[in-house]
Amino acid sequence: MAAATQASRPAFRVGDRIRISDRTPVGHYRTPMYVRGKTGHIERVLDLFLDPEAEGYGRNEGAEIRLYRVRFKQRDLWPDYTGGPEDELQIEMYEPWLERA
């Protein structure tokens, strides 16, 4: 119960500057390569959802983790981006992939 309460408190707030972990685990995950190691900001804090890395192996019980939406400037994702400087990419990201930046 205490663990659930702990997990339900978001570690990040809207506007926090974050970096996506640059790691390559084995298994099922929903963090595309193109955002790993990139720096952005928390766009909004979402609810708790099943961790796909546990769910992928049938481990559902107690495996809920915090989900966020993260915004990146396109120029921070793609060095050769030719669109406007304010263009953005937004993506959902689970808390274990977020690092303070």
């Binding site: 939406r69 937004q90 993506i91 959902e92």
Partner: peptide, 15 residues
């Protein structure tokens, strides 16, 4: 048009 911002939304998880 130039000057219009573009936001791409990657629908990669639960939303």
């Amino acid at each position: 048009p130039e000057g219009v911002e573009i936001h791409v939304h990657d629908s990669n998880a639960n939303m």
